[in-house]
């Protein structure tokens, strides 16, 4: 038996909106730790890792570890039917081939349940070791989204370079080239508006903008984004989910042959 009650249901709606374009089908894993997911896109270039910790739910009952295969587009369709202020409860019985999403309006005057069919998914699970990164950039998530969108109108790839000068995002395309430099800026009114760069080694890596633009669908989840880079390693783009966990995106670099 599984029963997870999330008072801030809008978080789950935002999570689905942030990952449904990158991944079609995924197994949601439920354990005493929390509700989690790890899935790669079909070309194995990008990976999403989600964790919603059990403590973040108002009620969390998971009698035994359970993996539920879901089509993320269908799940997103159902969650779109929940109001932004609704409480969402995820329910499943042991051995059942369905999951139920229950939506309660804040005043309890409207209660809906949506039952969705589960699916068997052969998912590959990658072991991602904890790593020390050469450079970690924290910046406003809206700024990162704006940069990825702007650069994708010029080129297909972005070179992200971190030096002591700041973090530079560069692209080239048929019509020309663009460079955007963000300097460390901690003298802002709100901490979330700061750009903070921790650098051990200068880093320069190239990525497909198509994927970074997918990642920025998670912008509504967090006002800041953390980009962790090491030379010759996949980048990690992390959006923290208020006191509950995170959505992390991993993206393999492009390499000059």
């Amino acid at each position: 038996m599984l029963e997870l009650r999330l008072v801030q249901g809008s978080l789950l709606k935002k999570v689905l909106e942030s990952i449904k374009e990158l991944v079609n089908d995924a197994n949601f894993d439920c354990s005493s730790t929390g509700f989690s997911l790890q899935a790669m896109d079909s070309s194995h270039v990008a990976l999403v890792a989600l964790l919603l910790r059990s403590e973040g739910f108002e009620h969390y009952r998971c009698d035994r570890n359970l993996s539920m295969g879901m089509n993320l587009n269908n799940m997103a369709k159902m969650l779109k039917c929940a109001g932004n202020d609704d409480i969402i409860t995820i329910k499943a019985d042991d051995g059942s081939d369905t999951v139920t999403f229950m939506f309660e309006s804040p005043t309890q005057d409207k209660i809906s349940d949506f039952e969705m069919k589960l699916m068997d998914i052969d998912s590959e699970h990658l072991g991602i070791p904890e790593a020390e990164y050469d450079a970690i950039v924290r910046m406003p998530s809206a700024e990162f989204a704006r940069i990825c969108k702007d650069l994708s109108s010029i080129g297909d790839t972005v070179v992200i370079s971190v030096t002591k000068e700041g973090v530079k995002f560069s692209t080239k395309g048929d019509i020309g080239a663009a460079n955007i430099v963000c300097r460390q800026n901690t003298t802002v009114d709100k901490p979330d508006d700061a750009t903070v760069i921790e650098m051990k080694e200068p880093v320069s890596l190239q990525f497909a903008l198509r994927y970074t633009n997918f990642f920025t669908k998670a912008t509504p989840l967090s006002s800041t984004v953390t980009i962790s880079l090491s030379n010759e390693l996949p980048v990690v783009v992390e959006y923290k989910i208020a006191e509950m966990g995170y959505v992390r995106f991993y993206l393999a670099p492009k390499i000059e042959e």
Binding site: V45, A46, G127, L233, A252, I255
Partner: peptide, 14 residues
């Protein structure tokens, strides 16, 4: 020539 790497090059498939 720019090649797109895949994640399985960096991480073990469990």
């Amino acid at each position: 020539n720019v090649e797109q790497n895949v994640l399985t090059l960096y991480y073990d498939n469990l």
